[in-house]
Amino acid sequence: MENERGLSLTQILATALSGMKATAHEAAKAEVTESYPEERPQLPWGTKGQLYVDIVDCISCYKCAKACPSDCIRIDSVRVPAGTLSDTSDGHKRIFDVIRFDIDMSQCCYCGLCTGRSSYVAADQKADPVALAAADRMAACPTDCINFYPRYENATEDVGNLMYHFACFSFDEALSRWNSLPADKKRTTHTGKPDADYEVAQESAAEQHP
């Protein structure tokens, strides 16, 4: 029993059997599949998961928003008198109240261009001060306040839930501080389109300090 190429049925069966032998050998090995909800993977250091902002370290420099290729970071901030806010953990002065620091994780492309120095060190050098200092040159964030942390279960039923808000000062708090500023210090910075809240802040401030 041969086909047009001259192969006999025994040959075909022999190769099929050797394949089955390999499969049987493979079946005897240890399982490689993780049963996901019960076993969760241990993600390595620096995994590009969820972006997290340590807002008390943010000096509102907008470098992360400018570095972002997909424009997913929106920041609004209001000038406050020097000394109102505590310094950052690495000694930067803070003179801007961050009233909005929103990251739209549905737009984030997980490139890591916005992050601080902690994201630019290798997996096993996270405690090495020399490596961290070398990473400073690369990092967009000067105060290491925005970084990835290995959270990966971000799925929601509504895409709006992927907008993460990090600003800890309420708008009213910021406005009252802003109102107490002398007129020549009343500067604001913003990225993108000024939203309604921002315009209200300007209008009400203008009313109170003509």
């Binding site: 190769t15 099929a16 394949g19 390999a22």
Partner: peptide, 13 residues
Amino acid sequence: NESINPVLTQNTI
């Protein structure tokens, strides 16, 4: 060598 070749590459079918 041990899995893909015997199952696919050397398979006459």
